[in-house]
């Protein structure tokens, strides 16, 4: 598969504190890449550089490049809004808007204002179906998204992302606030979604990384320690630190 997105020598600073050092990583199309590592290792910060979410945090600085289809998204003439439409994001805590289910999903298309002849109803239904939520909410589209269960809320957030027709989906520990059954549903959904999208997931849960991903990157102290095919990382890690982490010696 082709390379959809890649970073080269990416470093990131919060004020004086360096959070990422020289991270170079490639993400393949229609595959799931998992980023693992202990708390504070920089994996979430790294994920947020991929759709320029860190731009919203004051006093931060970035060095290096992030290429999406070989275009640097941090180039001076890059359009941050266009980048975020191509690189959608699902957050750790389900964060639906305090609006109806329909208006949550319709939010992105309404903001960008181009439906290309497809009606908003169709976009909403299609996105909810793709997020495996349609059957559960089709009779309550105009009820608040906040009355759904946590797992349903997270799938609503995924549907909301799908509605903007992204090419890459970033997931920042999407299941950490969910119970095992809701987690399983999201993981099944990811397998469906990867047929169409490039997915990058940050997870605290190594079993999850092993279950869902084809590629795994291990972060420690802001550095990418090891990167490779998930099976190899988990069965035959090349680096002692990786081995220590996945066998549970620290983290």
């Amino acid at each position: 598969m082709g390379i959809k997105m890649q970073t080269s020598s990416l470093s990131f600073y919060y004020g004086e504190k360096q959070a990422l050092a020289n991270v170079s990583l490639k993400f393949r199309e229609q595959e799931i890449t998992a980023l693992i590592g202990p708390s504070g290792c920089g994996k979430s910060t790294f994920l947020r550089t991929l759709n320029r979410m860190n731009d919203t945090i004051p006093h931060t600085r970035l060095e290096g490049e992030v290429l999406l289809d070989n275009q640097n998204i941090y180039a001076p003439d890059a359009d941050v809004v266009a980048v975020r439409k191509k690189v959608g994001m699902v957050f750790q805590q389900p964060n639906p808007f305090p609006k109806s289910v329909f208006n949550n999903v319709a939010f992105g298309p309404r903001m960008s204002g181009n439906n290309q002849g497809v009606s908003l109803d169709e976009v909403v239904e299609g996105s909810l179906r793709a997020a495996a939520l349609w059957d559960e909410v089709k009779d309550s589209l105009h009820k608040s998204g906040l009355v759904l269960s946590g797992g349903q809320q997270q799938r609503l957030c995924i549907a909301r992302v799908l509605a903007i027709e992204p090419e890459v989906i970033l997931m920042d520990e999407p299941c950490s606030a969910l119970d095992p059954i809701a987690t399983l549903k999201i993981e099944e959904l990811m397998q469906e979604l990867k047929k169409k999208y490039t997915i990058i997931i940050v997870t605290h849960n190594m079993q999850q990384a092993a279950r869902v991903s084809q590629w795994t990157g291990f972060f420690l102290m802001g550095e990418l320690v090891e990167y490779g095919i998930t099976r190899d990382i988990f069965t035959n890690p090349q680096n002692k630190k990786t081995e220590g982490y996945i066998t549970g010696r620290f983290g």
Partner: peptide
């Protein structure tokens, strides 16, 4: 207004 709400909107490509 929670930060998560603003980030959700920005991440969806809203200005």
């Amino acid at each position: 207004v929670p930060r998560a709400q603003r980030e959700a909107s920005l991440a969806l490509g809203a200005t």
